[in-house]
């Protein structure tokens, strides 16, 4: 798959194929959907089994569940404040789904569903709809004052209002493009250097020695990608919280 015809084929890893054989083909169930389901099953399993003992001194599994919970809770309460607790389930679900999508994609033969703009834009659009709905529900018509800051001279309105509207509309795009671009760039890099290993390895006697160089780069890259996977899930969650803060307080 990697070095057929001695070319670097870095993008075929993002192609969708049908999973589950003929049944999957009949309903267009792709490996991307399969990995989403897997992520949801793993997240549910961690939380259910982690919470089941309810021990005062947590065991390993309960500690994992509590770490995730407290991490996201600190993030949400720190950004939105105490009234932000009601949005905790939303941010927590988003964070875990993105995190497990990123991390599962690093396993061999796995597919990274967060490397598709359709998936990340779907998530970001959900965030956009929720923050707009929250702002409208809490503030009603005052929400539209968000697009024109108080105290600005009125004759500037034709300039300020379109700029603010476009700036507001750009939120889901930047949110989704950031996650998508990071995941695609990381996986392309991994694939390119992995192809170098194969191509250099075939260069006669010195080949295998030269191939060690891109291989060591790849080892470092996998570690870096793990960092990026966590970081991007964190960034996605914290930006969602910041937008929710804006929706709740309207500046």
């Amino acid at each position: 798959m990697a070095a057929e015809g001695k070319t670097i084929d870095a993008l075929s890893q993002f192609e969708l194929t049908h999973a589950l054989g003929p049944i999957g083909a009949a309903v267009n169930f792709t490996q991307s959907n399969a990995h989403m389901l897997l992520a949801v099953v793993i997240i549910t399993a961690i939380m259910m089994w982690g919470m089941a003992p309810r021990a005062i001194v947590p065991g390993r599994f309960q500690a994992v569940a509590e770490t995730f919970y407290e991490f996201v809770e600190n993030l949400v309460v720190g950004q939105i404040g105490h009234e932000g607790k009601r949005y905790f389930p939303f941010v927590f679900a988003l964070f875990m789904f993105v995190l497990f999508g990123n991390v599962l994609g690093l396993f061999p033969f796995a597919f990274t569903y967060t490397s598709h703009i359709a998936v990340t834009f779907g998530l970001a659009f959900l965030v956009f709809v929720v923050i707009t709905a929250v702002a409208l529900a809490l503030h009603g018509k005052k929400f539209f004052g968000y697009f024109f800051p108080e105290g600005a001279p009125l004759w500037l309105a034709p300039i300020i209002v379109p700029v603010e509207v476009v700036s507001y509309l750009s939120r889901p795009i930047s949110l989704s493009v950031r996650l998508f671009a990071n995941m695609v760039a990381g996986h392309v890099l991994l694939k390119v250097f992995a192809t170098f290993v194969v191509l250099l390895g075939g260069l006669g006697v010195v080949g295998p020695f030269l191939a060690v160089l891109p291989l060591s780069v790849n080892v470092l890259l996998v570690g870096f990608e793990l960092l990026v996977a966590f970081l991007q899930a964190y960034v996605f969650a914290i930006l969602t919280s910041i937008y929710l803060h804006d929706a709740v307080h309207l500046h």
Binding site: V166, S167, L169, S170, R171, I173, S174, V177, R178, A181
Partner: peptide, 11 residues
């Protein structure tokens, strides 16, 4: 960079 590009796309 992503902020600028996404605002351009939105506009």
């Amino acid at each position: 960079g992503i902020e600028v590009v996404s605002a351009l796309i939105a506009g």
